[in-house]
Design a protein around this nucleic acid. Structure first.
Lengths: 144, 144
DNA sequence: TGCCTTATCGAAAATGGTTTTCAATAACTA
DNA sequence: TAGTTATTGAAAACCATTTTCGATAAGGCA
């Protein structure tokens, strides 16, 4: 189950590069956590990330929190508020928006963005966020 | 300092009506908290709401949390994630989006919405959220 | 108006997610 | 390979939010 609309190999090497530039080390723990993030298309809670990583490597919950913080700060992950919970997902660093399944927390990226031409008056925009909530194909079938 | 793009009097009577329909009482504490929410255009943390309400009435922090929960649940307030913090703002129940000042947390509503014509493929959208982040007019002047 | 029912209040305790601490460990560099 | 230092993780600290529960007051009704 690969996140189809992300180029995972490219993303991985970009992150490696960025870590190197920042003088950060590529530890086994980070490798395992990143592998989890790369192979899911769901937005995860730190707890979920931690649990999923246990399958391949012993990783502490603190370390899961730390990698999320780092990836978010350098732009390779984004926080999404789903059903009142903060969840995190690995993202391509290019401009995009999200389709979010509120049942399974799957997140699909999409590039179309129609907010460029709008008139914001005296407000000075610096960034924006568009989230489409709904049900993914699987969850439409699975439940009534 | 009134939130110019909300019809506060109308909103207040709508909320009163809704509370009545739900068998909820209109206490002095709720009155005070609602007054704060009606007279600010900023998104507030529960703590800030609590502190602001003290000026006119003694209100407990728990009560501030409770009114936020209720207003959010019945659609008269929305949560917004600003600089990693969850903040809440009274909103008109009609469809709209937000311009959010990341410095003073002022939130302006706007009605334009250009997401209707998009193709979501097999994804079944049920709602969406658009947030424009930036600096409001005052904060552009105030700081370099 | 005053009574009665019951929603609401709030202080305190409990909860639980997140961050900090710090000694041990392991990645990278020279 | 050795030395430097970023990283780890268990435990403690932190703190925002929720729960508890006895006291209070809102609002319906006689």
């Amino acid at each position: 189950m690969t996140a189809s609309n992300r180029d995972d190999e490219k993303l991985k090497s970009e992150i490696r590069l960025r870590f190197h530039q920042l003088g950060q080390r590529f530890t086994q723990e980070r490798e395992a956590l990143l592998a989890v993030l790369l192979t899911t298309d769901r937005a995860l809670t730190p707890q979920e990330l931690y649990e999923a990583a246990q399958k391949s490597e012993t990783v502490g919950l603190t370390t899961a929190y730390r990698i999320i913080e780092t990836l978010t700060r350098i732009g390779f992950a984004q926080v999404i508020l789903i059903n009142g919970e903060l969840r995190y997902r690995l993202c391509s660093p290019t401009h995009h928006h999200h389709m979010v399944c509120t049942q399974c927390q799957k997140v699909e990226e999409f590039a179309e963005c129609q907010l460029e031409g709008l008139d914001y008056g005296s407000f000075h925009p610096t960034s924006h966020r568009v989230e489409i909530f709904g049900l993914c194909e699987q969850c439409q079938k699975g439940s009534s």
